[in-house]
Each structure stands twice: as structure tokens, then as C-alpha cells.
Design a protein around this nucleic acid. Structure first.
Length: 620
RNA sequence: GGGCCGUUAGCUCAAUUGGCAGAGCAACUGACUCUUAAUCAGUAGGUUGAAGGUUCGAUUCCUUCACGGCCCA
């Protein structure tokens, strides 16, 4: 007998499966004969009245009253009630997998079932199916969380979205709408004459942006590859190949922070259009948002961060310089020198010195203007310094033919007339090539293959890249990116109950034998590497040996106390396994060595300005 | 990275100053021919996220860790 409620309930359901199998019922058949959806029946009762239907879905509630039972099943479209009368329901028949009235006891809330019967209303007026047949489609082993309360634990909602979606149809609807956004974008771009391409996620050289990439290894080529941080350079190759309007709905991977509006894995709709410049895209993006608002959501007004945004209105278009001037009164275009620009930054309480006027303008915009752009705004005329892939404007060569989309203070897409002068591009890239930026994610790799493409010649081209998640956040009126990503990234977790149920091994010590190094021994052992001034630091070593399933194991750690106020530091991780008993003396030596290295690397990491010398005597 | 908060039964939540770990739903047994959060009677379900500490005694206080949330940079 299990002590856990979950395990007990699961066992009961397993035994129901056992009994059903004995009766000749397959609890997991491959196919259903479902022909009707619940909302069609409920919304159009007059046409369905008296007709036979076959519906299927998840059993969401079961109310037994002796010889009559009421049940609710939920399918993709909604819920419908089944009225199951002892006299109407046909008797048990394994040949057609029909459950009789007394076999209803094998059903649980959460099971998937199919039913056929006449549509009618009950005495209380509820539209129902008078079930003549009931077939089990899938036996569920675990109880659904509370059947009318919704899931509240945020961690559970994010980890088990399928449960949240089952219990919370409004939330499910939001994800349905995100799927429809994708259809909307595709049909919009199709109407405009675009072709969709799939571009590589695994790339030998990453490019098209500045971000920290994920690195992976491709065994068959024995090379490290990068997960795409952008798909832009591939779309440009397609333009070079002679396709005039292309797009991809791509997956983007950036090994950077996770917060309310950033996720390491996200999606963008990236387009490239030949023979046009960035002004074409200003219209395209505006039209695309309006199209989705009208086609998918059937409205143009959305509430974002407390502001009402109307996509019907023409979007504001403003240069970056003017956007900064509007907020701060400072016009960076009037700057005669970098010093002057930096003085402006100081006046704006931005504690950063920039190398060029352009960088200072960008900084001021980012710090002061961005968050004020609530209604949809297209900001153009970025400094060329921050736009290495964009063409300079004819009228002011230090500005790029580029614009960004801001909605509710969020950047929702970046767009420009693509630089297709290979000599210029190579020069810009080389000037920006700073391998030391790789760590901070502001590194432009040199992609000679791409320069070669440009040398063959790419016609004048422009591209846009609105982020799908940000779009979804706006249209679904959500402020957290996790609310628009069905499977947000999380650390894996195996619950205690699941460890038991699945028989997953728990690496647990059976018994602890002895501690082989004494406190004094260890302090003597490390005294040579700590200065007198660190006398108050106590290092407590722990080591133990034990036996588990005929494997001998050792593990050890050292705790440093007194280094920080109210905190101790634990250096851990030593472990060792063998099939026969250890030579303990040798193991202790290994442990000492390990701990010594740990301490040295710990000190190096945390006191990197201090030189750490390992004296000979420190070694055991 | 910094700060604050959370983790108790399958789910949602209690537990008074540190003093017997409880309820509703779900589950199980039984009654019931129109319910819809069905009802009624009964039963069972817990290593209070993990480890350590203080204490006669810890869900409660302290430390560390794990997982998560919110805010800030």
C-alpha cells in the first residue's frame, strides 16, 4: 500500500485498466469515430436537435445519480454534457468496445472517451447528448488538478502547460491566436508576392547581428557550429540567387539573459525585398500589424501596458535625432565634437563615455526616448556606427537607411536598406572586428563567404524582422514573454513522486562510514597557502566513504567559514566510485589534491587581483 | 548580478508567541432516475522542497542548497 495520494490514485487507475483488459476492452485504441464538435452542437442546437452525433473528448466531470449519470466532455472547441441513462445506454459489448452502465465505474475524470447518441435537452434545459454508446479512447492515470479552480502555481503552469490549457480554455485560446498570427503573416506576405524559405539553424559562422551564440558540435564534420542568432545573411543569399521577395519564420537563439521580454529561443518573421529601400518596409510593417489585428483578432485596439493602442491610425515616423530632441531638448546633430556629445550625455545623467557622436546619440535614445514611444512609432536615421549592415543615407552619410519599430516602449523589429557594397562592408566589419567583444555578445564575426556573395552582387535590398513573441504579447495583451511561449525554458525537475513511480535512481548514500581527515590535519594542510591575516578563516573538510549496491563511493567537500560575513562558502564536488573497496589512503590523497585545486581556483576567481602562488610545501 | 517573496495531501489553501499538521475539491466504500461546483453517510491520503543548526520540542527561528516568482540593474 502506498502512502502517497497520487501513487494510490494511480494504482487504482492501473487496476481499472487491468480489469478492462480482462473484459476484452483496449484502454488505448488507435482510432476514434468522432464526427461532431461540441461547440457546433451547442451553438446550433436547432439543427442538431434529435439527430445522432458522435462526439469525443476529455471527461471533465462525472455526476452519478443511481440510474442516471451526467458527464461533461471537453474537446478542442468547448464542452458538452452527456446524459447517460441506464435504459438508453446499450449494454456492455466488447466487440464494439461499448461500456455498459455498470462499466462506467472504470471511467475517471481526465479520461478521453467517445460517445454517440441523440442530441436533446435535459429537464433543466441543458443541451446534452443522450449517450447510447460510450467508448474509452484513452485511460488517464493521473488526476487532473482541481476541476474548476484553475492552476495557480506559476511553476506548474509553465512546466505543465498542457494541464493549464486543459483547465483554462481562455488561456488556450491565446495560444490558438498565436498560431493564427503565423497563418496571418503567411497569407499577408503571400498576397504581397513573398516566397517562404527555411534557412539553416545550424550555421558554420554566425552573423546578421550581435549576440552571444549557442555553440554546438557537429560530429560528422568535426566542427563547432552555431545556432542561428539571425537568418538575415541567408535571406540575402536568396536575393542574390534571384528571388525578389523572400521571408522566413525563423528560430533565433541568443545565449543571453532571461527576463520578462527576453527568451533564449525566440522567433522572428524576417523578410528581404529586392529593388526597394527601407521606406517600403515602413509601409509593409504597418500593413502587416493592421492585417493581423483585423484578420486574426477582428479589432484594431489593444491594451498594452495600460495604454490603448490603435493599429488603425497611421504610425508616427520620426528620426532618432528628433526623438531624442523631443524628450530631452538636445539635438545631437548639432554636436561638433565627441566631447560635446559626451557632455550632453553627462547632462542627461548617463554615466558613459562614447567613442563617437553617433554612439552617444544611440545611447541617449536608448536611455531616454525608447520607453516614451507608446503608440506605434517608426524611428529612422540610426547612426551608421551602430548599423554595420545598413546603407548610409544619401542626404546624411553618417546616418543609416534604417528604422526600428517601437510599440508600448518595446522594440518590435529592426529594418534597413541592406549594405551591398562588398568593399565598404568588409571595411566596416574589419573595423568592428574585436574578438574581445565575443564574451559580451557584441562581436561581429568576419564572414568571408558572405562578402564573396556580395562581391557577385546583390541588388538593392531591404528587410524587416519583427519578433513573433513581442507581436503576440501586444495582440494578446500580455506583459510576460512566458505567457506567449507555450514551452518556456526551465531547468528540468523530477519530483519525488515521479522518482518513485518511474523507478528513477536516486543517488543516495546508504551509510556514512568515517571522516578521514581531521580538522587539525586539514588546517595544517592549508596553512601554507593562507596568510596570517586570514587566520580567522576556517576550512572544514568533509569526506566520507560508503557502499551502495556493491559500488564503493567516496565524496568530499570543504567549507570555508569567515571569508564573508554571515556566509560560508562550500567547495564541493569531489566524488569517486569503484567496484571494489578503495585504497583509502590513496583516496584521501586524491581528495587533498582536489580540494587544493579547488581552493586555488576559488581564490583566483574571487580575488583575481591577488597573485596566488602555490608553495611546494602545500602539496601533500 | 542585487533586493524581496514563495515552496505544507494530486489541486487550492489553513495551522494563534515555537507546543497533537488541518479543511474543501479529487480518490475510495455505500445510498440516490434530470444533475450541472449534485447531495448525504463513512474511509483513506503527510519525510511540511533538501541538508544542517538552535531548542525539552521546529511547518514556524537561524544557515546553506534546490526550484520558482516579483522588482531593480
Amino acid at each position: 500500500m502506498s502512502k502517497s495520494g497520487l501513487i494510490e490514485q494511480r494504482n487504482i487507475r492501473l487496476s481499472k485498466i487491468e480489469e478492462l483488459r480482462k473484459l476484452g476492452i483496449n484502454p488505448y485504441p488507435a482510432k476514434s469515430n468522432r464526427a461532431d464538435y461540441s461547440n457546433a452542437i451547442v451553438n446550433d442546437y436547432e439543427s442538431y436537435k434529435g439527430k445522432k452525433v458522435v462526439a469525443a473528448g476529455r471527461l471533465m466531470s462525472l455526476r452519478k445519480h443511481g440510474s442516471v449519470t451526467f458527464a461533461d466532455i471537453q474537446d478542442q472547441t468547448g464542452k458538452i454534457q452527456l446524459a447517460i441513462g441506464k435504459k438508453i445506454l446499450k449494454p456492455f459489448d466488447a466487440a464494439i468496445s461499448n461500456l455498459g452502465y455498470s462499466e462506467l465505474k472504470f471511467l475517471d475524470v481526465g479520461d478521453f472517451i467517445e460517445t454517440s447518441g441523440e442530441v436533446s435537452k435535459t429537464k433543466t434545459g441543458e443541451i446534452s447528448i443522450l449517450s447510447e454508446r460510450i467508448t474509452l479512447l484513452t485511460k488517464s492515470l493521473r488526476p487532473l488538478p482541481d476541476k474548476w479552480g484553475k492552476l495557480k502555481d506559476r511553476e506548474l503552469i509553465l512546466r505543465k502547460r498542457y494541464l493549464d490549457a486543459t483547465l483554462n480554455p481562455e488561456n488556450k485560446k491565446e495560444f490558438e491566436n498565436i498560431a493564427k498570427i503565423l497563418f496571418g503573416i503567411r497569407s499577408f506576405l503571400k498576397e504581397k508576392g513573398f516566397l517562404e524559405f527555411l534557412t539553416p539553424v545550424l550555421q558554420p559562422q554566425y552573423g546578421g547581428g550581435t549576440a552571444k551564440p549557442f555553440i554546438t558540435h557537429l560530429n560528422s564534420l568535426n566542427r563547432d557550429f552555431y545556432l542561428s542568432i539571425s537568418h538575415e545573411l541567408y535571406l540575402k543569399r536568396l536575393i542574390t540567387a534571384g528571388f525578389d521577395k523572400v521571408f522566413t519564420i525563423g528560430r533565433y537563439f541568443r545565449n543571453e539573459g532571461i527576463d520578462k521580454s527576453h527568451h533564449p529561443e525566440f522567433s522572428m518573421i524576417e523578410t528581404m525585398t529586392a529593388y526597394e529601400n527601407y521606406e517600403y518596409n515602413m509601409d509593409l510593417i504597418e500593413d502587416m500589424f493592421r492585417y493581423i489585428a483585423e484578420q486574426v483578432y477582428g479589432k484594431t485596439e489593444f491594451k498594452v501596458k495600460g495604454h490603448t493602442i490603435d493599429f488603425k491610425q497611421p504610425w508616427k515616423r520620426i528620426s532618432m535625432t528628433d526623438a531624442v530632441t523631443e524628450v530631452t531638448g538636445i539635438n545631437f546633430d548639432d554636436c561638433k565634437s565627441v566631447e560635446e556629445a559626451n557632455n550632453h550625455l553627462k547632462a542627461l545623467k548617463i554615466e558613459e563615455t562614447c567613442e563617437t557622436i553617433g554612439l552617444a546619440l544611440a545611447k541617449a535614445f536608448e536611455e531616454k526616448a525608447e520607453e516614451t514611444l507608446i503608440s506605434p512609432t517608426l524611428v529612422f536615421g540610426h547612426p551608421i556606427d551602430i548599423s554595420p549592415l545598413a546603407k548610409p543615407m544619401d542626404s546624411s552619410p553618417n546616418k543609416a537607411e534604417r528604422f526600428e519599430i517601437f510599440i508600448a516602449g518595446m522594440e518590435c523589429g529592426d529594418n534597413w536598406s541592406e549594405q551591398n557594397d562588398p568593399v565598404e562592408l568588409l571595411a566596416t566589419w574589419k573595423a568592428n572586428y574585436k574578438p574581445e567583444d565575443r564574451e559580451v555578445g557584441e562581436f561581429h564575426p568576419l564572414d568571408y563567404d558572405f562578402i564573396e556573395v556580395m562581391e557577385y552582387g546583390m541588388p538593392p535590398t531591404t528587410g524587416i524582422g519583427p519578433g513573433l513573441e513581442r507581436m503576440a504579447m501586444i495582440f494578446n495583451e500580455r506583459e510576460n514573454i512566458d505567457d506567449v511561449i507555450f514551452f518556456p525554458i526551465m531547468k528540468s525537475h523530477l519530483s519525488k513522486a515521479n522518482k518513485k513511480i518511474f523507478g528513477a535512481q536516486e543517488d543516495k548514500a546508504d551509510k556514512s562510514l568515517d571522516i578521514l581527515i581531521t580538522f587539525d590535519e586539514f588546517q595544517e594542510f592549508v596553512s601554507n597557502c593562507l596568510k596570517d591575516s586570514a587566520q580567522d578563516i576556517i576550512i572544514k573538510p568533509y569526506m566520507r566513504f560508503w557502499e551502495s549496491k556493491n559500488i564503493f563511493k567516496a565524496s568530499g567537500s570543504a567549507e570555508i567559514i569567515g571569508l564573508f560575513k554571515n556566509r560560508s562558502v562550500k567547495l564541493s564536488g569531489y566524488s569517486s566510485k569503484a567496484e571494489k573497496p578503495f585504497d583509502k589512503a590513496e583516496e584521501v590523497l586524491k581528495f587533498k589534491d582536489y580540494i587544493q585545486n579547488l581552493i586555488v581556483s576559488f581564490l583566483q576567481k574571487n580575488f583575481n587581483k591577488t597573485e596566488i602562488n602555490l608553495s611546494e610545501t602545500f602539496l601533500p
